Simulated assay, not measured.
Amino acid sequence: MSDNYSIARYLISQLRPGLQLGETVLSPDGKVLLYAGTILTEKHIEKLSYYNCEGVRVRELQSGVGMGFDSNQQRKRGNAEPEELIVSHEYYEADMAATVSEQETEFAGIYGNVVKDLKRCFTIVRLEKHLDCELLQSIVDALLTLSERGIGATALLHTATRSEDYLFHHSVNVGILANIIGNLSGAFKPSQQRNLILAGILHDIGKLEIPVHVLYKKGSLDEDELHMVRQHPAIAFKFFRRFKEIPESVRLGVLQHHERDDGSGYPLQTAGAKNHPIAKVLGIADVYDAMTSKKVYGEEVSPFAALDTIQADSFSGKFSPKYSTPFLHELCQTLIGRYVTLNDGSTGQLVFWNRSGKETCLIRFSDGQVIDIMNQNKLKVIKLVC
Rank of each mutant, 00 (worst) to 15 (best):
L156D: 07
G55K: 13
K358W: 03
E300K: 12
I7E: 07
V301F: 13
F352T: 03
D313R: 10
A160H: 12
P17S: 14
K244L: 08
E223P: 01
F319H: 15
S249Q: 13
D3E: 09
Q74S: 15
E134F: 13
I371M: 13
L127A: 07
D344H: 05
A199S: 15
A8D: 07
G186H: 07
F243W: 15
P321Y: 13
P28D: 03
N79R: 12
S163C: 01
E104F: 04
N375S: 14
E93A: 05
S220E: 07
T123D: 11
G112W: 01
G182L: 13
L221M: 03
F240L: 08
T161G: 02
H169F: 06
C386Q: 11
Q20N: 01
L307V: 06
T38C: 10
D117W: 05
S264E: 04
H232E: 04
A312E: 14
V32S: 04
A94H: 12
C133D: 07
G265P: 11
S220P: 05
S320M: 13
K129C: 04
T325N: 09
I110W: 00
N195L: 02
H169D: 06
A271P: 01
V254H: 00
R338S: 12
P326S: 13
G68A: 10
L167N: 14
K76E: 08
K31W: 03
G317E: 05
L350Y: 04
E223N: 08
V58A: 07
K47D: 10
A8S: 06
I373H: 11
P267L: 09
Q269Y: 13
S366C: 10
W353F: 14
N183H: 08
I86A: 10
E46R: 09
F69E: 01
V125K: 10
I7Q: 07
I382H: 04
G337H: 00
T341I: 08
L221Y: 03
H158T: 13
G272W: 04
N4I: 00
V340W: 14
T270I: 15
K218W: 01
S366Q: 09
R126H: 06
G263P: 02
G253A: 04
G283P: 08
Q103K: 14
L61Y: 08
H258F: 13
K244Y: 01
L350H: 07
I310G: 07
L335S: 02
E330N: 15
